[in-house]
Amino acid sequence: MYVAVKGGEAAISNAHRLLADRRRGDRSLPAIRIEQIVAQLGLAVDRVMAEASLYDRALAALAVRQARGDMIEAIFILRAYRTTLPRFGYSRPVETGAMLVERRVSATYKDLPGGQLLGPTFDYTHRLLDPSLLTDQEVEAPLEREEAGEPVMRVSDILAGEGLVEDDGSLPEGHVPGDLTREPLEFPMARDLRLQALSRGDEGFLLALGYSTQRGYARTHPFVGEVRIGEVEVELDMPELGFAVSLGRIQVTECQMIAQFKGSAKNPPQFTRGYGLVFGQSERKAMAMSLVDRALRAEEFGEDIVAPAQDEEFVISHSDNVQATGFVEHLKLPHYVDFQAELDLVRRMRRDYEAAQDKDLPEAAE
């Protein structure tokens, strides 16, 4: 028994050494630095921050490096680190209407107050490999980074002025926002908890569900009211001071998806909304989140629940990639006893089957 334990420890130690060696790679090449990952792999860093629920670019870059670029492993590492941090309190809700916008596009209005701001995006690039990136040679002079501009009104405010879109809504008096990181999941969920789960859910899973709603697996015909990327101020109430203190600014991506609603006995025909908000620049995730959020509001609008994206328990229970990773990858761990039990069962069933076949043979011959 002790030999097996020691042997296992040695194998695991060697596996760790081999992993560290493969992570470092070719020693003739310089090691990649955290600053390089933050500056040049920013979208990967932003995804790790968003799905780990921890806004810290340096730590997210460290997780990406430690995980050798495996995004889900990096999310797992950073989320585990997050659990060790003390909780000082809850910030005030960020005011995205006061966002200093770097990028802002709308598919519903061509000309809108504040204009369309393309910002840094792949939307207009050709999906062709760029050989110039094979070298470190600068092909163009670097652009001077501009500061984010002034706050601009939301596109949804235009529709709201005509009463054609649902209100932002408000929480019941005395409602305390939930915290998924400290409370177990219970269904049905309040929308604030549901949005928390979607915000840290796996981008690929939400993208597939959002895509399914567009292919007819939910009764929605969405329009991107607005996608905006920019900086918002985070404030924390200080009871001893009697006012809120600014903790700084963070970059977020917000999406408001607009969908048609035919109305009901209680509500007139109007547009409804799906909402997405995530850390960093991650508009594909914010858009997918907003599509799924709108689909999950089916019961609220008296719509039939006929598609996976409308099933709250299905969506929320399977959207977390850290939990999904744990369930899938635990299958690699030893299951010797379980398998031997099933092996014995199959052998007994096989013997019973063969005995029954042998019993039936004389009757068949007659």
Rank of each mutant, 00 (worst) to 15 (best):
residue 2 Y to A: 05
residue 3 V to T: 13
residue 3 V to E: 05
residue 10 A to L: 04
residue 16 H to V: 05
residue 16 H to C: 12
residue 17 R to Y: 10
residue 20 A to V: 14
residue 22 R to A: 07
residue 27 R to Q: 07
residue 31 A to W: 00
residue 34 I to L: 00
residue 38 V to G: 00
residue 39 A to P: 15
residue 41 L to H: 14
residue 44 A to Y: 09
residue 49 M to H: 10
residue 52 A to R: 00
residue 54 L to C: 00
residue 59 L to G: 15
residue 66 Q to T: 11
residue 67 A to Y: 10
residue 68 R to Y: 06
residue 70 D to F: 00
residue 70 D to Y: 08
residue 73 E to Q: 01
residue 74 A to I: 11
residue 75 I to P: 01
residue 76 F to L: 00
residue 78 L to M: 00
residue 80 A to V: 09
residue 82 R to C: 02
residue 85 L to W: 06
residue 86 P to Y: 08
residue 92 R to C: 12
residue 92 R to P: 07
residue 95 E to V: 03
residue 97 G to Q: 15
residue 97 G to I: 11
residue 98 A to E: 09
residue 102 E to G: 04
residue 102 E to D: 13
residue 111 D to V: 07
residue 112 L to D: 10
residue 112 L to Y: 14
residue 113 P to L: 07
residue 114 G to E: 03
residue 117 L to S: 07
residue 117 L to T: 02
residue 117 L to I: 14
residue 118 L to N: 06
residue 120 P to H: 13
residue 121 T to D: 05
residue 122 F to Y: 06
residue 128 L to T: 15
residue 132 S to C: 04
residue 134 L to K: 07
residue 137 Q to Y: 14
residue 140 E to Y: 03
residue 141 A to V: 03
residue 143 L to D: 07
residue 143 L to T: 05
residue 148 A to T: 10
residue 148 A to M: 10
residue 151 P to C: 11
residue 158 I to H: 00
residue 159 L to W: 04
residue 162 E to K: 12
residue 162 E to H: 06
residue 176 V to L: 02
residue 183 E to G: 11
residue 190 A to V: 04
residue 192 D to Q: 09
residue 193 L to E: 01
residue 194 R to K: 13
residue 197 A to C: 11
residue 198 L to E: 01
residue 200 R to T: 03
residue 202 D to Y: 04
residue 205 F to C: 08
residue 205 F to M: 05
residue 215 R to M: 03
residue 216 G to H: 01
residue 216 G to Y: 02
residue 223 F to W: 06
residue 223 F to A: 07
residue 224 V to S: 15
residue 224 V to D: 03
residue 224 V to G: 12
residue 224 V to K: 14
residue 227 V to D: 05
residue 228 R to A: 02
residue 230 G to Y: 12
residue 230 G to T: 08
residue 233 E to N: 06
residue 247 L to Q: 07
residue 247 L to S: 03
residue 250 I to W: 06
residue 251 Q to A: 08
residue 251 Q to Y: 09
residue 251 Q to H: 14
residue 259 A to I: 11
residue 263 G to Y: 12
residue 264 S to C: 01
residue 271 F to L: 10
residue 271 F to R: 05
residue 271 F to H: 00
residue 272 T to P: 01
residue 273 R to W: 13
residue 276 G to W: 00
residue 278 V to L: 06
residue 283 E to I: 10
residue 283 E to D: 14
residue 285 K to P: 14
residue 285 K to C: 04
residue 286 A to C: 13
residue 287 M to N: 03
residue 293 D to Q: 12
residue 299 E to L: 04
residue 309 A to G: 12
residue 309 A to M: 01
residue 312 E to P: 00
residue 316 I to F: 00
residue 318 H to S: 14
residue 323 Q to K: 03
residue 324 A to C: 08
residue 327 F to T: 08
residue 327 F to M: 09
residue 329 E to S: 11
residue 330 H to P: 11
residue 331 L to S: 09
residue 334 P to I: 13
residue 335 H to N: 04
residue 336 Y to S: 15
residue 338 D to W: 13
residue 339 F to V: 05
residue 343 L to D: 15
residue 344 D to A: 09
residue 344 D to F: 09
residue 346 V to H: 08
residue 350 R to E: 11
residue 353 Y to L: 13
residue 357 Q to F: 06
residue 359 K to Q: 10
residue 360 D to N: 14
residue 363 E to Y: 05
residue 366 E to K: 04
